[in-house]
């Protein structure tokens, strides 16, 4: 049995899942939610450099909000009801999933990407933040709408069970969610405004120096010190990790900055507010700078760094990003506030 579900490929798994699930649930007369809108309303954009939290012995850098927040914020601000479930045992979790599918409900699941056999081998790392929508079952295989992939994929039940109960940091514990009720009318305008406001606050009004735009400057400061502090070999590993966090599949390029730009562009249309258009352009500029930073970092990793790619030059690029983003989010705060 396969539910008639419109699979739209997107850059980021959680935004894609959010948009696809909501578009499936709302009436046809309601406005369709794009991935970028889900990202913006869900206050997805963020920055944090947390050297005291280690992933594979390397510091954590994040370009977006914690996992689950996008889906929660979007459904909450649009007034959509959601049923969340977590499980203690594998059979119970799989039975509950089968029951929902039998009723014809597409179900969102959080999984560990390492166990999903349809992933490219080169991307199978342990990370437990991968969201998918299960839309059917055929024999012993589940039919899955994984928004990161161009089309619908299949996954054996045994592997899906492993993925839903992946262990380690942020273990999903079989968590699954589905939309139970949508309001009579979906109004995007207030949701967009509150999304912009929330994101801008977390970018420019953080009380700690390692989050938001201050965090970008802090990262620049640290990058400049890496070679003398850790030596060449470790610096390369640190830079490599940074590139992967920034450009890992799901960001849409430039550490989510381009996606946010796309959101601002769509928001300008929906709210009919031309002030947002230059904001979108500024975010594009910031994303381009992040890409330039990644190119410089990659040259270090390849051992082909020139004078232009010195850690000092990289810090300047990051400072430029921080400047642009501080200005943009302050203006956004005054527009939405």
């Amino acid at each position: 049995m396969i539910i008639d579900f419109k699979h739209t490929q997107s850059a980021h798994c959680e935004c894609g899942v959010t948009a696809n699930l909501i578009n499936h649930a709302v009436k046809e007369s309601d406005p369709q939610l794009s991935e970028a809108l889900a990202f913006g309303i869900g206050q997805g954009i963020f920055f944090g450099y947390l050297p005291f939290i280690k992933v594979n012995e390397l510091p954590l850098t994040t370009f977006r909000c914690p996992v689950g927040k996008i889906f929660k914020s979007v459904t909450r601000s649009l007034g959509i009801d959601v049923k969340w479930q977590k499980f203690s045992s594998v059979p119970k979790a799989m039975d509950a999933l089968d029951m929902e599918l039998d009723k014809g409900h597409p179900v969102g699941c959080r999984t560990g990407g390492y166990w999903l056999p349809y992933f490219p081998p080169a991307l199978r790392f342990h990370f437990n933040m991968h969201n998918i929508v299960v839309i059917g079952k055929q024999g012993d295989n589940y039919i899955i709408s994984d928004p990161v992939f161009p089309s619908v994929v299949e996954c054996p039940a045994k592997d899906l069970a492993l993925a839903r109960f992946a262990k380690g940091a942020l273990a999903p514990k079989g968590s699954m969610y589905r939309i139970t009720r949508v309001p009579g009318k979906i109004d995007l305008k207030p949701a967009i405004l509150s999304g912009i406001k929330g994101a801008a606050k977390s970018m420019v009004k953080t009380p700690v120096p390692f989050l938001g735009t201050r965090g970008i400057r802090f990262l620049g400061k640290c990058v400049e010190k890496w070679p003398e502090k850790f030596g060449q070999e470790k610096t390369i590993l640190l830079l490599g990790q940074l590139i992967r966090m920034q450009e890992e599949i799901g960001t849409g390029g430039g550490g989510f900055r381009f996606m946010y730009s796309a959101f601002l562009q769509q928001a300008a249309g929906i709210l009919d507010d031309p002030r947002l258009t230059p904001m979108a352009e500024q975010m594009t500029a910031s994303g381009d700078l992040w890409r330039r930073f990644a190119v410089k970092a990659a040259r270090h990793c390849k051992g082909r760094a020139t004078q232009d790619d010195s850690v000092h030059a990289m810090r300047q690029v990051l400072n430029a990003c921080a400047d642009i983003e501080t200005r943009t989010f302050k203006e956004l705060l005054s527009i939405a506030g």
Binding site: A122, G252, F258
Partner: peptide, 15 residues
């Protein structure tokens, strides 16, 4: 070409 091989394509946002 690199990581993705024949496993699909990823989405980029571009103007």
């Amino acid at each position: 070409p690199g990581i993705l091989d024949d496993y699909g394509r990823e989405i980029c946002y571009a103007v």
